[in-house]
């Protein structure tokens, strides 16, 4: 693997990896993010590869969630937040004026840290996205989408007899799978997950991890996690961040077995963070 070493303002180095196997679907170039006057991300350069799981790791406050929220422009919702630089999805700049964020967010879905089902029935939770995007003209088709999404999220067996019951009545792990089903019901290309297992017990976590591995066949997944083991288990690529800078990016195996940067080394061995 070839890497280009670039000095940055802090005098440290950024490693950029070229020629990782697979097709790149998202390219972030020179992305800076500000909250008011405070800069949270500095000159981010990152490629996300299709049909793979990319994990974003790093100490708390280093900007993982901020970067994740750039990819579907969820930062637009925060009035103080300003994003500069270019982020391309399938060779289109997502900040271009002709881009509709509604369409963007349909293609780039999101699963949050805390399961957040709507206080509606399980069925209506899944149907929410297809309905607002007018994806399913008939009830029969909508039924099919709901069933297919629940099956893909591994929740069908548990939920099929209680589709009309509130989604908030499920267990935490089931709720998170409901949220994943809700996200995949609109047929996204990319799914962003911000610490999706941090509120779950080990068994529910194992289920979600298994699910993520299956979902990789159809979707590109970017996941923020604080668990090194989780990143190592489920992701093909790993990016390590520190204080708003991307420190190192590469194939997960390489990052964990032979990190190039000392900070990465320290973090994965538990010395900083």
């Amino acid at each position: 693997m070839n890497s280009v070493v670039m000095p940055n303002e802090l005098g440290t180095t950024d490693y950029q990896t070229e020629l990782i196997a697979g097709k790149s679907i998202i390219q972030a170039r020179d992305v800076d993010v500000f909250y008011g006057d405070k800069q949270a991300l500095f000159g981010m350069e990152l490629d996300i590869y299709e049909n793979s799981v990319t994990s974003l790791i790093g100490p708390s406050g280093c900007g993982k969630s901020t970067l994740l929220r750039c990819f579907n422009r969820m930062n637009d919702v925060i009035s103080t937040c300003r994003v500069t630089g270019s982020i391309e999805l399938d060779s289109q700049d997502i900040h271009a004026p002709e881009v509709d964020v509604v369409a963007l967010r349909q293609k780039v879905g999101m699963v949050f840290q805390k399961p957040n089902p709507f206080p509606k029935s399980i069925y209506d939770n899944i149907a929410y996205g297809p309905r607002i995007h007018n994806m399913t003209p008939s009830k029969v088709e909508l039924d099919e989408v709901v069933e297919k999404s629940l099956k893909r999220a591994g929740l069908w067996e548990e939920a099929k007899d209680r589709l009309d019951k509130p989604g908030t009545g499920l267990s935490g792990g089931q709720q998170q799978r409901l949220c994943i089903a809700r996200a995949i019901a609109v047929e996204p290309k990319v799914i962003l997950m911000d610490e999706p297992c941090s509120a779950l017990d080990p068994i529910a976590t194992a289920k979600i991890e298994e699910l993520i591995d299956e979902l990789r066949q159809r979707f590109t997944i970017i996941i923020v996690t604080h668990s090194m083991q989780q990143a190592a288990r489920i992701s093909q690529h790993t990016a390590f961040f520190h204080m708003g800078y991307l420190v190192e990016f590469g194939e997960t195996g390489d990052i964990f077995s032979a990190p190039k940067d000392e900070r990465t080394q320290n973090y994965i061995t538990g010395r900083i963070g």
Binding site: M74, F112, N116, F118, Y128
Partner: peptide, 13 residues
């Protein structure tokens, strides 16, 4: 806020 995020995240206006 998490409910708003969920809805915006699905592309709702």
């Amino acid at each position: 806020q998490s409910l708003r995020d969920a809805s915006y995240g699905l592309g709702a206006t």
